[in-house]
Nucleic acid binder design. Structure first.
Length: 713
DNA sequence: GTATCGATAAACAGTA
DNA sequence: CTACTGTTTATCGATA
């Protein structure tokens, strides 16, 4: 009954929307009589459907199962917290479905070919139905209803597909068209699968996360972790599934179902989830223990029957468990699974007085057994889903930023797909000729774990300040390594009309050093600016003037007469000398500067990596040149770019284009910057003290620098 | 209050 | 003559 109504709703709306199409006429010819026989070709008149549409309540009531109970009954059954939680969960579910269906509606162009489904109307209808339905029935009943609804709808679609196939056999001339219809229906089947799966995943996650309490419909959960062959699954409606089916298929689905639909939907529900259920999460406190215990009891119930479960999960079996297990043995003061005197193992919340007791509890209660394995798998699924969600949210954020900041009239010749931001950044980081990207902000520390990045770190840190004139010196205030910043937020700056929080000099230098030849013409610098920053695609006169001004003013930019014209190069030493903080000999100042430059916030791994890179640089004989020591000298005085040290060393020591400007040798004009640093005021770092022994003495370098460079010609 | 820095504007010269 | 490139000066606001 309810499925029929829903199907009829879909069809009616479909016909209303798309008007007359060949398919519609076919189906209408098959069963215009009404909703009573709305199976394969069942069709009701638009008038009837309009009637149904206008009468939401009857429809929703009609779609209720016989298990329908009144709100009063619900209140009697459920406690107020449970009711509230149920309401939240239902809202999350509705939001999820709404958004998913909205997304499905984006395929209208495809559906328009066969003009049948019109899922966005269906979405609206179902949304209303769900809303009303959720007010009246309990969670488990609602889920049962939803299961039934999905099942019936799926059957409807299959029947329609079959009927179309039959029709296709009769009407050979429409074979091609029907093929597309079949494809479309299959697509809708997949969407249904995704919808249902997402629903269940959400339920599962909620059960784990503990936002929502009770009534986690284990049976529906089990059912709805639907395999790819939903048709078969839905045939045994309430039957007990094969024990390992749910996880297996869930794993498969999750591994393969990186499609936008699933993750998109998952992301939409995320606001309902305060935190992802990572081990150190605090959100489990909202979950009644017994409910999660039920869930995990169920999980363990089907995992116990498994003899070998490697095939059940796309993950390497041992890795997460072993890592988790090894973490048990970390008798450290803090444990990710221990907090606030509670065991943070999902579904546990056992009270532990101290770490020792917790460790004991961990080893006894959460040892490597089937139950823990299953829980860990579920957790992995949750994490993976969240990662997908994170990717989608990041993508959406980028799209939003692009939309808000990009001028539609402006050409976006370099507008790349937004979802490439993270991968592009990573690739860029990997492929950078110099390790500029080494200093990652803490947000990117998880990059090895997940290839997905959060949105531009600038949004939360420096970039918002960058909106507007570059009045700030990112050296002292922002401490943002331009290279890593650009590497990470490359796409963001390309698309968002946000002023980068870097000085012109920094940008120019970066542009030049980024070029393969370490030299750029003025026009190429212009192009780099416009290519890399949407902000510099307007007010060209202003910023171009500023670029020229900076090129001329700063001594670090050296103009070299080339065969094909004049190019600009970077004298890294001069660049580093440009703004020397007066911090010589003051440990406090040095410390502050280091921390201000971002070293203070670096994690140990990054510091180790940095140290390693520095050591490797020191050990590299090609890097021992006159610039190495000086540049390493600047480890503490690099103003806007922590990585500039390493970067510069590598740039000068890597290949022939890294020649110092003097070696270009045509017409090099030495500039005299007004605020020239006294040579003896240059701070000497520990590393520099080492490198100075290996490289040309800084005094010699300085003396050479003071010589007229034209003599080198 | 002062010095410094960076951005911006503008004048000017040279060149294609 | 125009546009572009490059240099220089001046001013302003922010910051230390």
């Amino acid at each position: 009954m309810m499925v029929e109504s829903a199907t009829e709703t879909i069809r009616t709306v479909s016909s209303n929307q798309n008007g007359v199409s060949s398919l519609t006429s076919q189906s209408e010819g098959g069963g215009r009589e009404g909703g009573s026989n709305g199976d394969a070709n069942g069709e009701i008149s638009p008038v009837d459907l309009l009637h149904l549409q206008q009468q939401q309540v009857p429809v929703s009531m009609a779609m209720m199962t016989p298990q329908m109970i009144t709100p009063q009954q619900m209140q009697q059954i459920l406690s107020p917290p449970q009711l509230q939680a149920l309401l939240q969960q239902q809202q999350a579910l509705m939001l999820q479905q709404t958004l998913l269906l909205n997304r499905i509606s984006q395929h209208d162009d495809q559906r328009a070919v066969y003009g049948r489904t019109a899922s966005h109307f269906e979405a609206g209808k179902r949304r209303k139905i769900n809303q009303r339905h959720c007010r009246n029935i309990g969670q488990s009943q609602y889920n049962n209803w939803l299961q039934e609804y999905y099942k019936k709808q799926q059957e409807q679609l299959h029947l329609q597909l079959l009927s179309q196939q039959q029709q296709a056999g009769k009407q050979a001339k429409e074979q091609q068209q029907l093929g597309s219809k079949q494809l479309a229906f299959q697509q809708q089947l997949i969407q249904m699968q995704q919808l249902q799966q997402q629903h269940i995943i959400n339920l599962q996650r909620q059960g784990l996360v503990g936002i929502q309490p009770s009534q986690v419909p284990i049976q529906s959960l089990q059912q709805a972790m639907c395999p790819t062959d939903l048709q078969q699954l839905w045939k045994d409606v309430a039957g007990v599934q094969n024990a390992d089916e749910p996880i297996k298929h869930e794993g498969l689905d999750l591994s393969t179902n990186s499609s936008n639909t699933t993750s998109y939907t998952a992301s939409k529900v995320s606001p309902q989830i305060p935190h992802h259920p990572l081990p150190n999460g605090q959100n489990s406190m909202h979950t009644p223990k017994r409910d999660r215990a039920r869930l995990f009891e169920w999980i363990s119930s089907f995992t116990k029957g498994e003899s070998s479960d490697e095939h059940l999960t796309p993950y390497p079996k041992g890795t997460p468990l072993q890592s988790t297990h090894s973490s048990h043995e970390e008798h450290t003061a803090s444990h990710p699974l221990y907090g606030h005197g509670e065991c943070k193992w999902p579904g546990c919340e056992a009270l532990c007085e101290d770490m020792g007791q917790f460790i004991k509890h961990l080893n006894s209660e959460h040892a490597l057994d089937d139950r823990s394995t299953a829980q860990c798998r579920v957790q992995m699924q949750v994490v993976q889903q969240l990662e997908i969600q994170l990717a989608k949210e990041s993508e959406r954020l980028q799209a939003m930023m692009t939309h808000l900041h990009m001028r539609p009239s402006e050409p976006k010749p370099f507008n790349q797909p937004l979802n490439l931001a993270s991968s592009a950044s990573l690739l860029k980081r990997d492929s950078e000729p110099f390790p500029e990207g080494l200093p990652h902000p803490p947000t990117s520390a998880a990059a090895p774990i997940t290839p997905l990045r959060q949105g531009p770190s600038v949004i939360s840190s420096s970039s918002l300040h960058g909106v507007g004139p570059i009045r700030r010196r990112n050296s002292d205030k922002y401490c943002t390594p331009i290279a890593s910043e650009l590497a990470q937020n490359c796409e963001f700056y390309k698309n968002a009309d946000v002023r980068p929080p870097f000085t012109y000099a920094s940008l120019i230098r970066h542009a030049i050093l980024e070029s393969p030849e370490r030299q750029l013409t003025l026009n190429e610098i212009y192009n780099w600016f416009t290519r890399m920053f949407a902000y510099f695609r307007r007010n060209t006169a202003t910023w171009k003037n500023a670029v020229r001004h900076n090129l001329s003013l700063h001594k670090c930019f050296v103009r070299v007469e080339n065969v094909k014209g004049a190019v600009w190069t970077v004298d890294e030493v001069e660049y580093q000398k440009r703004r020397p903080p007066k911090m010589t000999g003051s440990p406090t100042l040095v410390k502050n500067m280091i921390s201000g430059l971002g070293f203070g916030s670096l994690n140990a791994s990054y510091q180790a990596a940095l140290a390693e890179s520095s050591l490797s640089l020191l050990n590299s004989p090609t890097l021992i040149n006159n610039n190495t020591g000086a540049s390493l000298n600047m480890l503490h005085i690099g103003h806007d770019d922590v990585s500039s040290t390493v970067e510069q060393v590598n740039s000068n020591g890597s290949c022939s284009p890294g020649l110092s400007p003097q070696q270009y040798g045509h017409q090099i004009h030495v500039k005299e910057e007004p605020a020239e640093l006294e040579e003896d005021s240059r701070p000497v770092s520990l590393i520099a003290s080492v490198t100075q022994n290996l490289s040309m003495p800084s005094d010699e370098r300085d003396m050479e620098e003071e010589l007229p460079t034209e003599e080198l010609e």
